[in-house]
């Protein structure tokens, strides 16, 4: 199929899956923000109320993530092969650290996601803090307790923060890049989209890290 075989088609796959994941991280962070209104346990319960929906969306997300990873790897390998002889001296003018390290920030995010799933979804890491095993006063799984308990462990908190930094890097290039790949821009809007993409990445980053950081510095407690 053209989409899969063509260089541009593959990029389009990256951009579409990337944008779906961006959508996901935005929804997810919005959900996480309920923590500030002390509604996170309620939110988590609602979210899991209807298993068929949960599972179909999970299957979609798994496909999206795997597709993104597989094509990301293919593209990266092809790109390495297309420029095998390095320069003795090479100066870059416009490419950024973020654009150059997409594969590494991506790989780190992948690692993060795996850990994160065992951590907060399967809850097999630090089971004593598991939300499933500990319920709150209203009998709901105590997500709040799980988060606070875990992020009080510095190494975990720091790992999350670094995961978010990887995400920041990935999105600061990825968001605007996906607009370019999908042709959703123009000469005039490119600079705006580039800035907006970085801003979006930054806002997402701040929203996410606020939780572990506030907990780590002790500003948020049970």
């Amino acid at each position: 199929m053209l989409l899969i075989r063509s260089s541009v088609g593959r990029k389009i796959i990256m951009a579409v899956t990337g944008q779906l994941m961006v959508l996901f991280v935005i929804l997810h962070v919005a959900g996480n923000m309920t923590i500030y209104f002390d509604l996170i346990n309620a939110y988590a319960e609602k979210l899991h109320a209807f298993p068929p929906i949960v599972w179909s969306y999970r299957i979609i997300m798994i496909t999206v993530v795997l597709t993104h990873i597989v094509f990301g790897l293919i593209l990266k390998i092809e790109n390495l092969l297309s420029n095998p002889h390095g320069y003795v001296i090479k100066q870059s003018i416009r490419k950024t650290f973020a654009s150059e390290t997409m594969i590494w920030s991506g790989a780190f995010i992948a690692l993060f996601i795996v850990y994160h799933l065992f951590h907060f979804t399967v809850q097999s890491i630090n089971p004593e803090l598991s939300a499933r095993l500990n319920t709150d006063a209203m009998g709901r799984p105590d997500v709040m307790n799980m988060l606070v308990g875990n992020f009080q462990i510095a190494s975990i908190g720091l790992f999350y923060v670094s995961g978010m930094i990887a995400l920041l890097l990935h999105l600061s290039h990825g968001v605007q890049s996906s607009f370019q790949t999908l042709g959703l821009n123009s000469e005039k809007s490119i600079p705006i989209i580039v800035k907006a993409g970085k801003l979006a990445a930054f806002l997402i980053f701040v929203a996410y890290v606020s939780i572990p950081i506030l907990i780590m510095v002790g500003l948020m407690d049970l």
Binding site: N79, S82, I93, R94, K95, M102, S177, Q180
Partner: peptide
């Protein structure tokens, strides 16, 4: 055997 574009914008 040209590579794929990752929107680095060095070309421009």
């Amino acid at each position: 055997q040209f590579g794929n574009c990752s929107n680095h914008y060095e070309c421009n």
